[in-house]
C-alpha cells in the first residue's frame, strides 16, 4: 500500500499515524507531488491532521528524546528522495525500542539520519555565512538565496538575534518563499511574481545610494587580504564550492 501526504512535516506524521491506526503495512509514504502514476498502485491520500501529528511527535519524544524529534524535522527539510520512509523507519524502531535510539550510530537508519542532519547543519551554517544583504531605499536589508535544502525555516533564529533593529528579508528563489523580519517578528512571505528576483543583484533604482559603494569596498577588501605567495585554490574551493559563488558579491568579476 502507498500513502501520500501534502508535503508538510505534519502531513508525513499524520500518514505515519494512519499506519498505526489502521494497522497496515505500507510499501511507501511519499509527498503527493512526487507520486508518479503507476498501473498497479492507487495511493491513498492522508489528509494532514494536526492532532495526530502531535501525538506521533510526543510518542517519539517519550520513547527517545527531544533530540530525536529535532533530528527528524531537520532531516525532513532535506527534501531528499526516500526521506519520508527513513523517518518512518526511525519512528518504527523508536516505538519498538525500550531505550533512546537517537545515538545508536551502529544502526543504519539512525546513522543515515545523522548524516543527513549533518548536511542540513552544514547548509544552515553556509547560509549564516554566505547570505549577503543589500540595503534598499526603504531601508530593508535584502537577500536572495537558493539553498540545496529547504533550510529557510531554520534561519530566522540566527538572523533575528543578530539584526533585531533592522528590517531584513531572505528569499528562497528556488522554493518561492521568503522570511521577512519587521523588527518585531519573522513572517513567511511569498511574492506573486518573483521572476525579477532571479537576478541576485537588485536593480540600482531600488538600492540605497550607498549600497554600491559598500559592495565595491568589500570586494576591494577581499582582494587585498589575499596573500598571493600562499595561493591554494584547492583549499579555496573546498571552503567555497563554486555553486555558492553566486551569493558572494566579492566573487563577482566586475561591477
Amino acid at each position: 500500500m502507498v500513502l501520500t501526504y501534502d508535503g508538510t512535516f505534519e502531513g508525513l506524521l499524520s500518514a505515519i499515524f494512519e499506519t498505526y491506526r489502521l494497522k497496515i503495512a505500507v510499501a511507501e509514504i511519499i509527498p503527493k507531488d512526487e507520486w508518479q502514476n503507476s498501473l498497479f498502485e492507487h495511493p491513498t491520500h492522508v489528509a494532514t491532521n494536526e492532532e495526530w501529528a502531535k501525538r506521533v511527535l510526543i510518542g517519539v519524544q517519550k520513547k527517545s528524546s527531544k533530540k530525536a524529534t529535532k533530528l527528524l524535522y531537520h532531516c525532513f527539510l532535506s527534501e531528499l528522495p526516500g526521506i519520508s520512509m527513513l523517518i518512518f523507519d526511525f519512528i518504527k524502531k523508536s516505538v519498538n525500542s525500550n531505550i533512546d535510539i537517537t545515538d545508536n550510530f551502529g544502526d543504519d537508519t539512525v546513522l543515515q539520519l545523522h548524516q543527513i542532519k549533518k548536511k542540513i547543519g552544514r547548509e544552515v551554517h553556509r547560509m549564516h555565512a554566505f547570505v549577503r544583504f543589500q540595503c534598499t531605499k526603504d531601508d530593508i536589508y535584502y537577500s536572495v538565496i537558493e539553498p540545496d535544502f529547504n533550510v529557510l525555516p531554520l534561519l530566522n533564529d540566527h538572523f533575528e538575534k543578530r539584526y533585531p533593529a533592522q528590517e531584513w528579508l531572505i528569499y528562497d528563489v528556488k522554493r518561492h518563499y521568503g522570511i521577512f523580519y519587521n523588527k518585531d517578528k519573522t513572517e513567511y512571505i511569498t511574492f506573486e511574481d518573483d521572476t525579477q528576483l532571479q537576478y541576485r543583484q537588485l536593480n540600482e533604482s531600488v538600492l540605497d545610494e550607498s549600497e554600491p559603494e559598500y559592495q565595491i569596498l568589500w570586494k576591494s577588501y577581499f582582494d587585498n587580504v589575499n596573500i598571493p605567495e600562499r595561493r591554494n585554490m584547492k583549499l579555496h574551493l573546498q571552503h567555497v564550492p563554486k555553486r555558492y559563488w553566486k551569493y558572494l558579491s566579492e566573487k563577482r568579476a566586475q561591477f
Binding site: A129, P228, L248, K251
Partner: peptide, 30 residues
C-alpha cells in the same frame, strides 16, 4: 548577546563569511 535596539551578537561558534584564494577564512574586518 544582543541588546535592545543593538546590532549583532557573537556566540560560541565563529562564522567564516568568505575565503581568500590562499584558502584562509575571512571572518573579521582585519
Amino acid at each position: 548577546k544582543n541588546t535592545k535596539g543593538g546590532l549583532g551578537n557573537s556566540n560560541g561558534v565563529g562564522i567564516c563569511h568568505s575565503y581568500t584564494e590562499d584558502g584562509r577564512c575571512v571572518s573579521l574586518l582585519k
